[in-house]
Simulated scan of single mutants.
Amino acid sequence: MKISLFIFVLLSLCSLNAVGKKLYKFQDEQGIFHFTDNPAEAARNKDQQKLEVRQLKVAPKQLVWLLQSGEERHPQYYIRNDYAGPVEVEINFSERDNVKATPELPGRFVVEPGKSDTLFQINALNEQESWRLALKYRYIIGSPLSHYSSKASYLPPIAPNAAFQISQAFGGSFSHNDEQNKYAVDIMMPVGTPVYASRSGIVLEAEDDFYNGGTNKVYTSEANNIRILHDDGSMAIYAHLELEKAQVHPGMAVAAGQLIGYSGNTGFSTGPHLHFAVQINQGMELVSVPFTFIDQQGQAVEPKVHVWLKGIAPSRMGNAVE
Rank of each mutant, 00 (worst) to 15 (best):
S198N: 08
R199Q: 07
G201S: 05
I202N: 09
L204E: 07
E205C: 14
E205V: 13
A206F: 01
Y211D: 13
N212T: 15
N212C: 15
G213R: 00
G213Y: 00
G213V: 05
G213L: 03
T215I: 03
N216G: 10
V218T: 13
V218Y: 10
V218W: 08
Y219C: 10
T220E: 15
T220Y: 15
T220F: 13
S221M: 13
E222D: 13
A223K: 06
A223D: 01
N224H: 08
N224I: 10
N225W: 14
I226H: 07
I226N: 04
R227Q: 10
I228M: 01
I228V: 11
D231Y: 04
D232S: 04
G233R: 02
I237R: 04
Y238V: 03
A239T: 11
H240Q: 08
E244G: 09
E244L: 03
E244P: 01
A246N: 12
A246F: 07
V248L: 04
P250E: 00
P250S: 00
G251R: 04
G251A: 05
M252A: 11
A253W: 03
A253D: 12
V254M: 03
V254I: 07
V254W: 00
A255Y: 05
A256H: 02
A256F: 00
G257M: 07
G257Q: 06
Q258Y: 00
I260A: 03
I260H: 01
I260C: 06
I260F: 00
G261V: 05
G261A: 09
Y262C: 00
Y262E: 02
Y262L: 04
G264D: 04
G264H: 08
N265K: 04
N265P: 04
T266W: 01
G267W: 04
G267R: 02
S269C: 06
G271W: 00
G271A: 06
P272I: 06
P272G: 10
H273S: 09
H273V: 03
L274N: 09
L274R: 08
H275L: 12
F276D: 01
A277S: 14
Q279M: 09
I280M: 03
N281V: 06
Q282L: 09
Q282G: 08
G283R: 02
G283K: 02
M284R: 08
M284T: 10
E285F: 12
E285N: 14
L286Q: 08
V289Y: 12
F291L: 08
T292S: 13
T292M: 09
T292K: 05
F293K: 02
D295V: 13
Q296A: 14
Q296M: 13
Q297W: 07
Q297M: 11
V301C: 05
E302T: 15
V305W: 08
V305Q: 12
V307P: 05
L309M: 07
G311C: 05
I312S: 05
